[in-house]
Amino acid sequence: MATRDDIERHILRAAQGDRTAFKALYDATSAKLLGVALRVLNDRAEAEDVLQEIYVKIWHNAARYNVNGLSPMTWLITIARNSAVDRLRKLRRAGTTDVLEDRIADTGAGPETQAIAASERRRLDACMEELAAPRAEAVRRAYLDGETYADLAARFDVPLNTMRTWLRRSLLKLKECLSR
């Protein structure tokens, strides 16, 4: 498995136009990013199509990677997640996908899937657990399912402003917990 340093080196070389490094980056990370896109979109063909878009963005923006302060996997995952959410929202607007359709369940993670440091994940999990279960679910659905305030308000059957107040309070609690 490629280490964090390998991935970073591939990105930096791709930024200089090194196609071999870009292919190495693709080989090391595309399965993870397809997993993320599939988790968001729940549609294999759409996820594969978005994956193509994701790597085009990565190639075009590789030169800007090392100035944004994110770890290499966080940078890649953020591009993947945001691209997949953009696609999902486009599909929803077009009426192709049911807004509140339940997503596929997460499959168990092997050690090879742990692209993010386990400590980061434990920290987030612990802080999410300090939130009431529905509040934590709302944060997860916003991130992993691209749900909007309107989607969440419908899901939890509360007025939109109430939903926003809830979620904003959850973010503040999370931030306090995460920075402890």
Binding site: S71, I116, A118, R123
Partner: peptide, 15 residues
């Protein structure tokens, strides 16, 4: 960074 940790349990899917 914090939110990306939510993707840790997502299994890779070979394209």
């Amino acid at each position: 960074t914090d939110f990306a940790a939510m993707t840790d349990e997502i299994a890779p899917q070979a394209p």
